[in-house]
Amino acid sequence: MAQMILEVEDLTVSFDGFKAVDGVNFYVEQDELRCVIGPNGAGKTTLLDMICGKTKPTSGTIKFNRRELSEMLEYQITRAGVGRKFQNPSVYEDLTVLENLEISYPRKRNVLGSLFFRRSSEIQGKIESVAHQIYLGDSLGMKAGLLSHGQKQWLEIGMLLMQDPELLLLDEPVAGMSPREREQTAVLLNAISKGRSIVVIEHDMAFVRMIAHKVTVLHQGKLLAEGTMDQVQSDERVIEVYLGH
């Protein structure tokens, strides 16, 4: 069996008695690109929220490289090597693209370090190469708030790349993108998945087909099916709850 980077076991969270995620087991291997699909309210975003520390689970364990994450604070989880992209692009709109990327550089994240931080040529080079990779090489000086919706999505992925996480959690990375931008994003994700694991939540089946190694289907907080895209698409229960209509 390949090395597991993420082991989620028996994970449950309930909000006022409503179980948004209910006893889910979820394993991600190293270098894997996993897609999580499911109808609205299936618990996909909540699952990612728990892995990255935004929501505290009611019970269950989340092990990342054998370290338990559920007791850690968000910034500690980020420093441990988990990167999260949110459903609505969350970039710092009043800062430039360059500053957005620079802030995400994973050093000097304490008060004094950041006060006396100087941008070395190494960091400058890394910022430029990431900006180029996310198709924003010419927009470094632009305020992030002025970018198009799709460009903000890319910028947020770029911010994660600056962090160089071992595990990337992407919530609907192509929402609101044109077909052309979707293709570019698929190329981007395939390129960056080398050397790290990625979990993607997505509704667009054509896009999932372009990128996924393996697909997990959630339904009403429970794990419904798991396998390759073809296996999942031919699964009776999946067709019934999700793909059928």
């Binding site: 968000e74 910034y75 999260r84 969350s90 970039v91 710092y92 802030i103 995400s104 994240r109």
Partner: peptide, 8 residues
Amino acid sequence: DRVRFSGY
């Protein structure tokens, strides 16, 4: 909220 996930 986002800043926490930049590791700060």
